[in-house]
Structure formats: C-alpha cells, structure tokens
C-alpha cells in the first residue's frame, strides 16, 4: 500500500490503515519531540496527541507536501507549545535511557559507558536548548533527524536560504558554547 492509498484510507476512518500509519511514523514523531529535551513520558503523551490531531484533521491534508513534513510540523508546534506552557524542560532521566535506547542497550556497554554517554547527550541537548527557537529547530532537524534543507524549509515555512543561514548560525553558536564548556 503506497502512502497516498494509506492517507485515503485514514480519511475514510480505516483503523487498520491508521495503525499502519502510526507504526510507520511513531519513531520519527517520538524522536522529534524528544529532541526538544522533553522527558520520555511527556514525549509519549505529546506523540499521541500528534497522531490524534493528525487522525482528526487528516481531511485537511491535501498531498501538497510529504505526510512526514506535515507530521513534523504538528510535532514541532506541539513541542514548542508544551515548552512554552511548562516553561521548563524535563530532561530525560537515566531510567529513560535504559528504556529508550533499546538497540544501544543490546551492545555490551558497561554501566559506566552508558552513564558517560547519557551525560554527554544531556550536555549536548542542554547546549542546543540555549540556541534560539528557529536555530534549534533547524539544527535538530538537519543534524539529528537528517532532514534536507528543502524539507526543513517546508516544515518551518521559510526559504531554503533562511534554513542555511539558521543552521550556519546554530553551528557557530553551538561551537562557541561547546568550546567554552571544555575550557
């Protein structure tokens, strides 16, 4: 079943098609929410809200962009609203790490290595959170989610050159902060 057929079936409230859709995109949505430094529990709630919104508003989707772009847009808006509401970022706890990084856990890492990795990830996300909103979104989508400039431009509803500029500035700021962190 191709993506268009899947969307048409979801529009006609086919639950099996929606399940397939959720299973295909839940990882992407979940990761994009978590990349804003939101805790695992809240990220799961937000991801569910993203899919509920998508299911209820799928009739508004007109195949003008990729469905993933549309989902990213919902996920980013939800995440930003969540952060704005709480005005506090809930960092993932060590317990979350053991639950989340499933494949990573399968490797024979010692608990010390895991701890070091988790600390490094926290430091990185904390530094990313200090960037401006647009720089943070553009950088996260490009360097963590591996989206192209064009895709990011569609999600953020800005030009490709603006995305390039945002990522350039984000890298520069992040670099300065990271170098200062280790001084």
């Amino acid at each position: 079943m191709n993506e268009n057929d899947l969307i048409e079936k979801i529009k006609s409230k086919d639950e099996r098609a929606f399940k397939t859709f959720v299973e295909a995109y839940n990882g992407m949505v979940f990761r994009s929410v978590m990349s804003f430094g939101i805790s695992k529990v809240d990220a799961e709630d937000l991801s569910q809200e993203v899919f509920i919104d998508a299911y209820r508003n799928i009739y508004k989707f007109r195949n003008e962009s990729e469905i993933s772009t549309w989902l990213y847009r919902i996920a980013i808006n939800k995440s930003l609203n969540f952060i704005k509401k709480r005005k506090k970022i809930f960092w993932r706890s060590n317990d979350d790490t053991t639950l989340l990084a499933k494949d990573f856990n399968q490797t024979e890492d010692s608990s010390e290595t895991k701890y070091v990795n988790e600390e490094q990830r926290k430091t990185l996300y904390r530094t990313i959170q200090k960037l401006s909103k647009n720089q943070r979104i553009a950088f996260t989508l490009n360097k963590i989610e591996n989206l192209s400039y064009k895709e990011i431009a569609e999600i953020m509803d800005i030009s490709v050159s603006s995305v390039e500029s945002l990522i350039h500035r984000a890298k520069k700021n992040l670099q300065t902060r990271l170098l200062n962190y280790f001084k």
Binding site: G27, L100, K102
Partner: peptide, 12 residues
C-alpha cells in the same frame, strides 16, 4: 544514539 529511540510496542 537518539536515532535509535523508539516508543514501546504498546504505543498504538
């Protein structure tokens, strides 16, 4: 490592 993150099987 974050790229490996997936929600659990009972998400749906």
């Amino acid at each position: 490592i974050s790229k490996e993150i997936v929600p659990d099987h009972f998400f749906y």
